[in-house]
Simulated scan of single mutants.
Amino acid sequence: MTKARKIWIIFILGTLSAFGPLSLDMYASSLPDMQKQLHTTASLAQLTITTCLIGLAIGQIFIGPLSDKIGRRIPTLISLIVFALSSFLIALAPNIDWLICLRFLQGLAGSVGIVTSKAMCSDLFRGKEFARYYYMLMAVNSIFPVFAPTIGGFFLLFGNWRLIFIALGVIGVLLLIAVFFFKETLAKELAVKAKQRIPLKEILTNKVFISFTLVSGFMTGALYAYIAGSSFMLQDIFGMSAFSYSLLYAFNGIGQVIFTWLGAKLTQKFKEQKVLLWGIEVAILAAIVLILTTWLPHQLRYVIIPLFLIVSLVGIGNPLGSALAIEQEREVAGTASAIIGLLQNLLGAFISPLVGLFGQKTYLPMAIIIFLCEFIALLWWQLGTKKHYNNHVK
């Protein structure tokens, strides 16, 4: 492949891997608007995030092994059709019950692209080239949190939350057209081997793989707490408009892009596991600062920096932890990617409603949940990842 062709493929794969951010970030600023229009509660509004995350999680665990057996292209095409249709149906949802159910279906469809995009990257590239292009893929992925909330806020200026899902349906159609011209990337010999047996037990007992997966998962869990709680925090407590909030959300997304690039640069000079540890430690400090700001007067300047760091450092933790995990199980990259995505989305599904259940009058619950996610990631590093990785490479 030419370099231009590789970059085009990575852009499409990065977009496919971004179904999580696309389904959540474009929608985040519209939660208060949707809550009022459908005459529902904040907790039920946040449940539309939870059901989407559950769909993203469940779908990945099934599509991973399937894509290792039959290939990546056909499942991806079918999922894009379902994603587009479900998005258009959500735009017509008459009440919160329909919205919750359709968000689950949308999550199921979106889960396929998340798995197959990373597996295709693993199929196409090896060694240092894989690490470089995987970081590029995740850099494309991290661009969407920058533009998605701004686009969502823009739609709210001219309409309501339903326009956001019409846009998601259009994105699904465009990706369907692009992927239609892709060739199958799974090597025939690997497909034959996977048809014989998917070593799920061996993957789940690979301590190095599980350790990297959990560290990455809990760092991403902090991001889900931010997604679920920041719109209520910044709009209801700090008085920001939906559009202003989307701009700040985009600003934090830019930080995630920058830190993804920074992580790639740091891993060229330092050990990957060390860079991952630095990211966790700085994120913990930012979470502690955010907790302390709850006792200060509610002024935006106090929370901008800790929120920026919490979101940005996911740009180091997520791609680096995931890449290190997938490297342990390259022969069944689809299944490995599915397990990583399953854990991350289950954590997100569990964390999102917790933020709302503990109240909307203060953002202390959100700050504490973020801190706990980062602290658990650190514990897994100290108690698991460091020891198992060192033993593995000896």
Rank of each mutant, 00 (worst) to 15 (best):
M136P: 01
I210Q: 07
Y249S: 02
D25W: 11
L204D: 01
R126A: 11
I288W: 01
G348S: 08
T220F: 13
R197M: 04
P149S: 10
S230H: 01
T185R: 02
C373P: 05
N391C: 07
F125V: 04
V140M: 09
G359I: 04
L292F: 15
A187Q: 11
A323S: 15
K201C: 09
I9G: 08
L214G: 03
L276S: 03
Q382S: 15
A325P: 00
W98S: 12
A377R: 05
G159D: 01
L108Y: 01
A283V: 03
A228L: 05
W98P: 08
F350Q: 09
I203A: 08
Q106M: 12
Q382R: 15
R72E: 02
A250F: 01
L276R: 10
N390S: 15
F251V: 08
D123C: 03
L378V: 11
L296H: 07
R301K: 06
A167R: 00
T335L: 05
K3C: 03
I326W: 13
N252D: 11
A139L: 13
G384H: 10
A93H: 03
F350G: 15
P199F: 08
Q37M: 14
L102F: 06
I81H: 05
V179Q: 06
A4K: 09
I7D: 06
A18L: 12
T116Y: 01
G229S: 09
I177D: 00
F62V: 11
Q256Y: 14
G110N: 05
I339R: 06
I100R: 05
L186C: 10
P306S: 12
F308R: 06
I74M: 07
P145I: 04
A333M: 07
L137I: 03
L223N: 13
L105G: 08
Y133R: 05
E331W: 03
T294Y: 03
L44D: 05
D123I: 00
F11R: 10
T51I: 07
G263M: 12
S43L: 08
F182I: 09
G255L: 07
A139Y: 04
G384A: 11
T15V: 14
K6Y: 07
T294W: 04
S312H: 04
L47M: 14
I351S: 09
I254Y: 07
E129H: 00
P94Q: 12
I284C: 14
I288L: 10
I114F: 00
F155K: 07
I291F: 14
T293P: 14
E327Y: 04
L92R: 06
R132Y: 07
G20I: 01
K36A: 15
L53P: 09
W8F: 13
T294S: 08
L364M: 13
T293I: 10
A119Y: 00
L320A: 03
F238Q: 12
A336P: 10
I316F: 00
Q299C: 02
K274D: 03
H388M: 12
L200S: 11
A338E: 07
A131Y: 02
C121S: 11
P353H: 05
S312T: 01
L266K: 00
M138Q: 12
S337D: 07
I100Y: 05
A131V: 09
F243E: 06
